[in-house]
Write a protein that binds this DNA or RNA. Structure first.
Length: 284
DNA sequence: CACCATGTTCCTTG
DNA sequence: CCAAGGAACATGGT
């Protein structure tokens, strides 16, 4: 479930629930997700530690902890990869097949599961230094955005996925942002006009903000739930079978009519990833 | 069997 | 040195 909005919703969900909780026991079932931290370092550092709060940077979760008898704070970094999920579950609940790390608080477990194991739960914070500005903060300015785009020969859709340009935009919201801005995904980044850059900058912020607002209405108790239904990109707001309120305007809508002009949405492949756009509304 | 999937990193090439 | 492209990682759904 992972682009910036989903991670943001998860942070808001988890932060108050984890606050002041002390980790009694750490169980590592897939040491690979800790890399480069070793299982021993991980358990030593976290056993007995207490959560202060959870924040976010791009698509990364930052768990802030304090350790008894030690100075300063410790940051546990989480990344959900493509299929990672994190949730609280009663200690006697059934563990998912791909549970990678389990933090026990007594009666409750915090479970990190990841079907494909592309995600991370680690004490290594180095990846954070490579991130660009937070799109919803004042650090993300049109001027810097324009400057960075002018230096790139890559097509704009692929450039938007570059986390050093702006942190947190993934494959879904890259397509959605370009549609909202009326900019072709195939345009070279440096060829965008001032006006297009301005519209795209605004669209990125709008699309992410709306997704966070929409996601806030969806329950996050994912234990044992169907994967796709837990993807609130698709805007599920109830458990009633078949009930979906579509919120994405172009992503995964190849062949379906554009919500604005009716032209069939097109799918193309760029840098080995799908891009969806309206060939009529996004001509340049 | 084929192809597709919300992401990042590493390696090669230019 | 940098930018860009592709493979790799691993599992499951259709």
């Amino acid at each position: 479930m992972p682009e910036l909005p989903e991670v943001e919703i998860l942070v808001r969900h988890l932060s108050p629930r984890l606050k002041m909780k002390t980790i009694r026991r750490v169980e590592v079932r897939r040491a690979k997700v800790l890399l480069p931290t070793t299982t021993r370092q991980f358990r030593n550092a976290l056993s007995g530690a207490r959560f202060i709060g959870v924040t976010r940077r791009g698509k990364y979760l930052l768990f802030e902890l304090r350790r008894p008898g030690k100075r300063g704070r410790l940051t546990l970094v989480g990344h959900l990869g493509m299929t990672g999920r994190i949730y609280l579950q009663r200690q006697n609940g059934t563990l998912p097949r791909h549970a990678a790390v389990i933090f026990n608080f007594g009666k409750v477990n915090l479970i990190y599961e990841d079907t494909r194991y592309f995600g991370r739960m680690t004490l290594d914070t180095s990846a954070l230094t490579r991130l660009g500005p937070e799109p919803l903060s004042t650090d993300f300015t049109v001027a810097d955005f324009a400057l960075a785009l002018k230096r790139s020969a890559q097509v704009i859709k692929v450039k938007l996925l570059d986390q050093s340009l702006v942190a947190g935009v993934g494959n879904i919201y890259a397509s959605e942002s370009l549609f909202r801005a009326g900019v072709s995904p195939r345009l070279a980044a440096r060829r965008l006009t001032r006006k297009q850059v301005g519209r795209l900058w605004q669209a990125v912020r709008l699309v992410l903000t709306e997704a966070i607002d929409n996601g806030s209405t969806i329950p996050l108790d994912w234990a044992g739930r169907d994967k796709r239904k837990a993807l609130f990109y698709y805007g599920q707001t109830t458990d009633t079978p078949g009930f979906y309120e579509e919120r994405l305007l172009v992503y995964d809508r190849a062949g379906k009519p554009c919500s604005h002009c009716g032209t069939p949405i097109k799918r193309v492949v760029q840098a080995a990833r799908s891009t969806f756009y309206c060939p009529c509304c996004q001509r340049s």
